[in-house]
Design a protein around this nucleic acid. Structure first.
Lengths: 109, 109
DNA sequence: CTGTCATATGACGTTTGTGTCATATAAAGG
DNA sequence: CCTTTATATGACACAAACGTCATATGACAG
């Protein structure tokens, strides 16, 4: 019974962090265009600064992005070691299952 | 502006599918113990049959598990090509960031 | 064609997460 | 120190997903 259950909480949190569209966009952008500060990210994605800030906080807690202060700015960069292969895996999977991935009943009602 | 935004919906759905604890447990169990039917899965994880069924539906929509009817049973197996490397990547990442992954303010309140 | 085992579906209340607004902190220059 | 630019925080209303219960469908044996 309970011995069969793995402790899945950290896994869930990690994937949940990646799953949110705003957060994924941020990861994807940092991955493709390199390091940026919050203002640049929010401008680039047409997203309010506060929203980007909230999500960046989550992403750094989760170790998916790193931060470095530069003067009065904070420069965010992606954790390539994890994010790069995850994006590639996902791209690969989606190529094959894109149609279904727009109609998962348990998620989209 | 909008030219900078990737179409992230399928990515979100994929990761959201993996993120739910029940669904991740199912994936993890099928990955480690091989193919099973719904009844076995639900017994193994101490989860109601209907719950497992709902989640398996989502997981197969998303191409994360495959189904094969055998008599009156349906045998579910994991899509190893995607799930195996994703689990390994996550394990690797969590080893380094497990502490933080229990306290992401944007997710855990 | 009826009973039993296996699985799926639908609906609904509760919980959880998200975006947004208003506002706070932080750094640097004049 | 006061202003400006950059970033973060808190609170809250709204929306979405989850688990659960009751019930339906499907397959096969007798």
């Amino acid at each position: 019974m309970s011995s069969n259950q793995v402790y899945v909480k950290p896994y869930s949190l990690l994937f949940q962090a990646i799953a949110n569209p705003s957060r994924f966009q941020i990861l994807y952008t940092l991955y493709n265009k390199g390091s940026m500060n919050v203002t640049e990210i929010s401008r680039e994605l047409g997203m309010e600064q506060t929203r980007a800030s909230h999500h960046l906080k989550c992403l750094s807690y989760c170790g998916l992005v790193f931060v470095k202060r530069e003067g009065k700015m904070k420069v965010y960069s992606v954790n390539k070691e994890t994010v790069a292969p995850i994006i590639k895996l996902a791209e690969n999977h989606i190529e094959k299952f894109a149609n279904n991935l727009q109609s998962c009943d348990a998620l989209v009602r």
